[in-house]
Design a protein around this nucleic acid. Structure first.
Lengths: 193, 193
DNA sequence: GTCTATAATTCGATAGAC
DNA sequence: GTCTATCGAATTATAGAC
């Protein structure tokens, strides 16, 4: 039995660390400035390596972008949460994320790119269908679009545009203001298709 | 009495038309792709003139951007609207705008630029303080931020990201889904500062 | 694997002819 | 007022040395 790797099991290649550093820097840059304003040079500088290494690992700026958009929102399973607690729970979940991660949050990264980039918008639709809707559980899956409006609107006004009336509220004030609106959406009958 | 101008009174200079064409093309480009992806060359091509004319009229890309962001949302005065009708009215107003103007709507132009451009975000805050809040009337001015979250979230999911669950609804289904949420926000007591 | 050097584009901005 | 021509800077991407 060879004991040459004291770290985790899945064989941490020597320069997977470089790859991860590039990806991390790219996500931060894309999140802060979107696709166009992000340069490979700046990503490489953040990662502490040479710009050509980015090309070597990811081939092109577009493929780096795709790799950066391969995102797991890491949502909790809310399918067992009682309907009357669901609204508060989901709002608190995202507020806590944004308090912790700030502008680096994966959802904000996607949002910032998706408004001017068709590929990012497509990825966002996939993520909402594959992660947000399942997280809410089958009972509320058809309301995922409506809930998304609330959460994305909140991300916009509070985290990105920083509109004073929303950005200055405390977390609990935000929960108190938005949870009733979300709850009313969960309770109302589904719209006919 | 000289009768050499058969048009409107305010003396339509010969090449105010050129200026207007540039501004119109710029607004469309900025709205579709944001600041960075918009090139002066493309704007000029859309307007049917030479790129150097854009420079002559506006000096720089940044000043063209500022001119394009000098926007009147043209909001109706809702201060006299009864509180229980306000929610439906404001949602219908924006849905009708977007049906008519599509992606060229001034609010969408601003939004698309504001998520990656600090100057556009600042302009958006000014416009919300100077146009949206006054439109709602003094009684609901402090709720302008919350209402903005709803409207911007709706703009995002329905017009820009086109998340299926929201984009496929009819106008009246959207009104029925969102108006109760907005109404509950207008009725709830203001959050403490 | 990492870096240097550079090719090939593209863009904002300027100068100047007509 | 409008256009031609072009500069200088920044960028993606490639080729190749070590």
């Amino acid at each position: 039995m060879k004991v040459c790797e004291p770290e985790e099991v899945p064989a941490p290649r020597r320069s997977d660390r470089t790859r991860a550093a590039i990806l991390d820097a790219a996500r931060r840059r894309f999140a802060a400035h979107g696709f166009e304003r992000t340069t490979i040079r700046a990503v490489a500088a953040d990662a502490g390596i040479d710009p050509s290494m980015v090309m070597r690992y990811f081939g092109s700026k577009a493929r780096l972008f795709d790799a950066a958009l391969d995102i797991d929102l890491n949502l909790p399973d809310l399918s067992a949460t009682p309907a009357d607690e669901l609204a508060e729970t989901v709002v608190r979940h995202f507020l806590r994320r944004w308090e912790h991660d700030g502008a680096d949050d994966a959802l904000l990264l996607l949002l910032r790119s998706a408004v001017t980039n068709g590929r990012a918008a497509q990825r966002m639709r996939e993520i909402f269908a594959g992660q947000v809707a399942p997280s809410l559980g089958e009972a509320h899956a058809e309301k995922a679009g409506l809930i998304s409006t609330q959460l994305l609107g909140l991300a916009l006004t509070r985290q990105m545009l920083r509109i004073p009336g929303v950005a200055r509220m405390t977390s609990e004030e935000v929960v108190a203001a938005y949870a009733p609106a979300i709850r009313s959406m969960l309770q109302s009958p589904p719209a006919a298709a």
